[in-house]
Nucleic acid binder design. Sequence first.
DNA 1: TGCGGTTGGGAAACCGCTTTCTGGTCGCTA
DNA 2: TAGCGACCAGAAAGCGGTTTCCCAACCGCA
Lengths: 340, 340
Amino acid sequence: MGQRSRATTIADVAAHAGVSQASVSRVLNGRSTVDPDIVRRVQASIAELGYRPSPTARSLVNGRNDTVAMVVPDLENPLFQGILKGLSLAAARDGYRVLVADTAENVDDEESIALEARQRCDALVLCAPRMPEARLRALVDQVSPVVVVNRPLPGADVPVVGVDYVRGIRDLVDHLHDLGHRRIAYVSGPPTSASNAERRRGVAEALAARPDVRIEEVPGGSRLDDGYAASDAVLAAHRDGCTAVIAFNDLVALGLMTRLHELGVEVPRDLSIAGFDDVPMAGFATPPLTSMSVPRGEIGGQVWLRLRTLIDGGPVEHSVLYSPRLEARGSTGAIAGARA
Amino acid sequence: MGQRSRATTIADVAAHAGVSQASVSRVLNGRSTVDPDIVRRVQASIAELGYRPSPTARSLVNGRNDTVAMVVPDLENPLFQGILKGLSLAAARDGYRVLVADTAENVDDEESIALEARQRCDALVLCAPRMPEARLRALVDQVSPVVVVNRPLPGADVPVVGVDYVRGIRDLVDHLHDLGHRRIAYVSGPPTSASNAERRRGVAEALAARPDVRIEEVPGGSRLDDGYAASDAVLAAHRDGCTAVIAFNDLVALGLMTRLHELGVEVPRDLSIAGFDDVPMAGFATPPLTSMSVPRGEIGGQVWLRLRTLIDGGPVEHSVLYSPRLEARGSTGAIAGARA
DNA sequence: TGCGGTTGGGAAACCGCTTTCTGGTCGCTA
DNA sequence: TAGCGACCAGAAAGCGGTTTCCCAACCGCA
């Protein structure tokens, strides 16, 4: 930390300028009114000595270090990357930095990692899609101020910023329904994922709203190869009458499309495919992947706003859920034999 | 930072256990031998009071943070993500954390961001592909200990961990040459990017080694849409006789392939396409994208090793350059009319 | 000219921890 | 039994800042 070898301290500056440390500190922080002549001398000394105040010492006395931590299960997930980026940029605008802690999908370590991270920072952003809700609720109480990302936590004293997966799935089903599809396969995400549970709720609601639709669940995962590997089950569902597929996310959808292409299944002629998240690649797939767009960067920004309010002693602001927006592209089409 | 409201301090623990702060500290750090009875009492008090030492206070006296900072131009770039992930996991194993600072491609701010980040951390990882070399050299001297990622800095007193783009491009040209291609288009990266300069050196060396090959440079970029937009120029080169394309990276290649597909150009029959980096999506494209694989996570790990040595007062270790490995896939094929 | 009220700067306390330094106790040896 | 080290715990001095507290100087006014 700090500078090379024996760093210059505020005492050096004070001595060099012939004033007290207190005055140097005052000049540094512009706290109280200081004699212009002293200001000038201090600034000159600071420049001459190349003095930079120690953030650590400041942190110790101020009780804050202008840093927040973000805990994520997997830094390689495009969703979290986007959120991290949005958070990082928004926080930087307010002079805050972001520490990242990748739990490497290791749910058991999440509490200790979060606690540790929180200790070193002023606040926490928690992305813990797999942690059982009871544990998450308990954890959240210990690490306040904290904002939770992307999973509902009704009644908890924490702002949540997330995505309305329920609605997203319903909208996606509507889209497919409009195209004439009545039998749909849902390639599910990780079984313990909270957002997978939300999507399944969306499936259930869609079914309730549309008695003419049937949706079959097929085990999947969250990554490209999971989608690739799900092709057999998807094709079985297809033979069974399914004409469209909703994948847990875009990676799964893209992996699945790759395999289907290899197998000579044509999308969307034989089978319509839709993903979720609208990752950058979605629009560039062949065919372009229909997806529910999620504003990753903006979520990061909203997370920061709530976190900042909390840090400044403000109230727990309202949670917010973004409604995914349908990006209808070429991978979904009218059911064979129907007129869209 | 720290805990809720008035946090318990080491003084509280000492009072509660009826010993001195020094003893508590000794128990905490296992420094010197302490009476077993005192150890027991202190540990009991710690547990009872739920005491957690303040990392900030520790940092102040120890002069270290156990935190390193990574400065990146764009957190959304898969290359940096992979490196960040590798670094973060490796550092975590040694009890270190990683602070990220996204410069948002803003080259002018890079120095101040890097300096700021360095101040708060024990060491720095610098990814600054666009910064002019002279400035980078000057910067590097100010922020030591530091490791530079992915750009050559001959003679500088800094470990560099990077990718041998020169060789990678040469190998890629060899691959295309083996397939019969003699006229190749190189869709270049950002003009100021150091790794683009390296790739161009690779192009030059390949040309020198193979008098029968001609390579034409086409302006591109670093993202999907840059590749998409480069299609016109690529097709012009194609009409002009080029039978294969080397893209700056996989994103450019994928974007290009998307557009070519839209235009009815068949890959690799009409045109072979190769990328660089081997991003996760590469193997899932249609056709699967031939790419030069780069061990992103391992680069992050190597960066950490060098950084740790530096932090511990060790010597500047040797720089290391990873040779990209060819992942020949379906997007490159024998030239039309030739026999591979 | 004298007095109350401001104002501005310096001394020192403090943030929470580590580490040196000191002094007391114990055990061993002569 | 006296003397010497070894060993261990506590007091205190930092680490590098901020802020309180206090005093001196200065202002305006009577």
